[in-house]
Design a protein around this nucleic acid. Structure first.
Lengths: 250, 250
DNA sequence: CGCCCATTTGACAGCTTTCAAATCGCGTGG
DNA sequence: CCACGCGATTTGAAAGCTGTCAAATGGGCG
C-alpha cells in the first residue's frame, strides 16, 4: 500500500491518487517534499485576504473554510475543506490572497513551499496532472455553489450542501454519507448558503420534520438519502468523484 | 512583437503572457499547436452538460458563457468569456462536462486537442504555469461570484458585475472600462446575478437615474466609475490583472 | 451554580418575485 | 416607405420568501 499513514503527506497522496495510482517513484518524490506539520486551533486564520503566501497548506485532520467579507460586513463561505485538500494553492500561486482561509475545527496541517510543489508538478507530469485536476474539481464545486446560492430556494439550497458534504466526507474516508457530523454552527451553514441563521434553523427543522434528516444538537444525519438528494436537486457529477467511490449511490 | 495577429492563436498567447512574456521558443511551440478555427452563430452550444470533450476551445472574437440549469428550470450563468479565454479546459480535463457553454454572440473560436495542450503544458513549464494560473484566476472569479449572489443585494450585485465586465473587457483589449457595450439582454444579466429580469430592469433604471451608468438600448456605459465601483463593493484584486493593466484605476 | 454561546421561536418588515399588460425597437414583407 | 410582428424592455400591483429584531430556551463549561 503506497499511502502509508506514517507520513503526514499520506492524506494528500490519497487525494491526488483518486484518479490513478502513482508509481513508486512518483510516490517517493511526493513524500520527499519539504514540509512542516502544524497543529492549529479552531478559528485560526491560515490565510488572510491580501496576504502574500509562499507556501501551500494541506489538511491532515479537521476542517477549514474559505470566506469573503462583503461591504456591509456579511460573510460568505466559499468552500469547505477536509483531509487531503490542498487549501491555498490558489492563493499562493496567484501571489496575493483574494479571500480568507480559516480553520473551522482544530486541525493538523502540513505546510509545503509553493516552489517545491510547483517544481514537483512539472518534473512529474502524473503528479502535476493530479494537482491540476484537483484545482479543476475545486472550480467545479465553486460553479455548483454559484448555481446553488443564485437559483435555488432555501430548502433546496440547504439540502444540496448537506448532500455534497456527505459525499465529500465519505470520499475522504471520514464516514458514511448517510451518517456524519456537521462540524459547523447554523450561523456558519447560513454563510455557506447565503441565508440567515434564523432561516437556516427554520429550514433544517422542516427537513427534520419531513424525515429527510435527523438532528441532534450540532450534528446532522441523513435519514433518507434519496429524498434529500431529490429535495436538494443534487447529482454528484460535479464532484468528479472516481467511480469506485460512487458505488453506494446510484 | 511576438503576438502577431496573423495567427488565430494570438489572443491565447496574449492572454497567457499577461504575467510574463514567453521566449521565442515557447511562443513558437504554442503557435505550433494543432488547431481548427471555427465560426459559430449566437446561441450555439460549445459544450453540453454531460458531454465528453476531448478538445479545448479558445475564444477569438465574440462572447460565450457557462451556465447550469437547476431543478425548477431556472438558469444560472456561471461565467462570461471573451477573446483569449480558454473555455473548456475544465470540462475536457475532467472528462465529463458538468455544465453548458454557449455562445452569447456570433463567435470565432479555435479548437485545440486536449492532449496536445496537456503535453505542451508539461513540456514547457512557462506555458504550463501560465495555463495553471489562468485556471486559478477563473476560480478566483467563481469565488467572487459566489459572494456576489450569496451576500449582496440587487443594486450592489449588478453594479459589481458591470465593474467586472468593464475591467475584463479592457484587459482583453476590447475597449475602455468606462465605455463599452454590454452584449447581453437583461434576462441574461439576470441569470448572471441570480435575479429576475424584471428586477434587473428596475435596478438598472436606478443606477441610470443616479448617474452611475448611461443606458442606450442594449448597451451600457459607465458614467461614474468611482461611484459604480463603490456601489458595487468592487475591488479588482480578485481578477489578478497584471499591474500594467490597472494603471487607470487606483 | 451561573455564564455564554448556539439554537429556537414569534411577529413583522421588506426586498424580490410573480403575473400581466403596455411600450419600444427593429427586421421583414407588402 | 409604411405596416406588421416578435422579442426585449418597462411598468404596475400584489404576493411571498427571507430578513430583521427580540426574547426565550437549551446545553456546555469553568
Amino acid at each position: 500500500m503506497s499511502t502509508s499513514s506514517a507520513s503526514p503527506l499520506a492524506p494528500l497522496l490519497a487525494k491526488l491518487q483518486y484518479c490513478a495510482p502513482f508509481n513508486v517513484s512518483d510516490d517517493a518524490a511526493l513524500r520527499a517534499l519539504p514540509h512542516e506539520v502544524k497543529k492549529l486551533e479552531a478559528g485560526t486564520y491560515i490565510v488572510r485576504d491580501g496576504d502574500k503566501q509562499t507556501r501551500a497548506c494541506v489538511m491532515i485532520s479537521g476542517f477549514s473554510y474559505r470566506h469573503k467579507v462583503v461591504a456591509d460586513g456579511a460573510r460568505q463561505i466559499l468552500a469547505l475543506h477536509m483531509r487531503g485538500d490542498l487549501v491555498d494553492l490558489q492563493n499562493s500561486f496567484l501571489g496575493t490572497a483574494d479571500h480568507n482561509v480559516q480553520t473551522l475545527t482544530a486541525c493538523e496541517v502540513v505546510y509545503i513551499p509553493r516552489d517545491a510543489l510547483k517544481q514537483l508538478a512539472f518534473e512529474r507530469p502524473v503528479i502535476g496532472e493530479a494537482m491540476w485536476r484537483d484545482t479543476l474539481v475545486d472550480g467545479a464545486i465553486f460553479r455548483e455553489w454559484i448555481a446553488n446560492v443564485g437559483r435555488r430556494d432555501a430548502r433546496t439550497r440547504i439540502a444540496h450542501v448537506l448532500c455534497e458534504f456527505a459525499l465529500r466526507l465519505e470520499a475522504a474516508g471520514l464516514g458514511d454519507h448517510r451518517h456524519w457530523d456537521l462540524p459547523m454552527t447554523q450561523e456558519q451553514l447560513a454563510d455557506v448558503v447565503g441565508l440567515t441563521a434564523v432561516h437556516v434553523n427554520r429550514t433544517l427543522k422542516t427537513l427534520d420534520r419531513d424525515g429527510l434528516i435527523n438532528r441532534t444538537k450540532r450534528s446532522v444525519a441523513v435519514a433518507n438519502w434519496k429524498a434529500l438528494a431529490t429535495a436538494g436537486d443534487f447529482t454528484s457529477g460535479y464532484l468528479h468523484l472516481p467511480e469506485h467511490k460512487l458505488g453506494l449511490l446510484q
